[in-house]
Design a protein around this nucleic acid. Structure first.
Lengths: 139, 139
DNA sequence: TTGTAATTGATTCTCAGTCGCAATTGTAAC
DNA sequence: GTTACAATTGCGACTGAGAATCAATTACAA
């Protein structure tokens, strides 16, 4: 379970499993879909938690390093994340006009990327593919 | 030529071709490879031009809209751009450890993306694929 | 040449994300 | 359970890319 993964990751690095980190983890895994750190902060606030913005920003990189979280897109200025446990990786098409985001998954794409990495002597960990253009309604 | 493309783009939008915009355009097309707006500013400074940072930030979106410039990657906080006139599109592998950027092009990837857009009723204009991982030296 | 809307540089402002620090807390060793 | 200490916390100040403001200037159509 994701709890165990995080716990073991922290232990291996000599870091502590604090109440705050547990709460952040729990919150992130309580829903599916994108979020940005600011949103997460508000979400936690509403549930009575008083975890600081700084702790959230400090925890996010740990979750990424442990493989539980992925940066998905950068909208405007801020980064968006999504938990990856029990999820298929997917990529995004973003409409220039209305901002709509279409998620898609392509096994062919995944395999092509593996092949490309091999060709270039690269060990790929994660990737993001963003296609920008016009959606069905705005084309 | 890129000059003409930009000129016509501006005309069509009722915008003016100023000395500053010409200088920025010229500078961007005077070299190949990535740059960020700050770098471009310094570059222009060194050549005796006193174009303001603000004008650069204002011109970049115009160049993107006219199809002459593309955002390639976001390193840390700032965006990097690259001119696209007379270039093949390429994508990037970024090393998590040393920050090295490997450029690659795959015709297969281009075609797969076209197919994906079609499947999802999307009219694709541009795309970025970033593969993060470990390069040959850091793996 | 003129009228006018677009553009400029300088400056200020914004806001996501980071940093420093004193107080607190998790955890391993006893 | 205590102890000891390094890791972590929240707070508030800081940073830096990029946007907004505005008076002065400029491109360009008529």
């Amino acid at each position: 379970m994701y709890n165990t993964i995080f716990k073991e990751f922290l232990q291996k690095k000599g870091l502590k499993l604090t109440r705050e980190r547990e709460a952040i983890l729990k919150e992130i895994f309580s829903f599916h879909g994108h979020f940005d750190p600011e949103e997460l902060h508000i979400r936690l606030r509403k549930k009575g938690s008083s975890i600081s913005k700084a702790s959230i920003y400090r925890t996010v990189p740990l979750l990424i390093e442990s493989g539980l979280l992925e940066e998905v897109i950068k909208v405007d200025k801020h980064a968006h994340y999504e938990h990856t446990y029990g999820h298929n990786h997917h990529d995004h098409m973003i409409c220039i006009t209305c901002g709509r985001v279409v998620e898609f998954h392509s096994q062919e794409l995944e395999e092509l990327q593996k092949r490309l990495c091999k060709d270039y002597g690269f060990r790929g960990i994660s990737h993001t593919l963003e296609i920008r253009g016009y959606c069905r309604k705005c084309r």
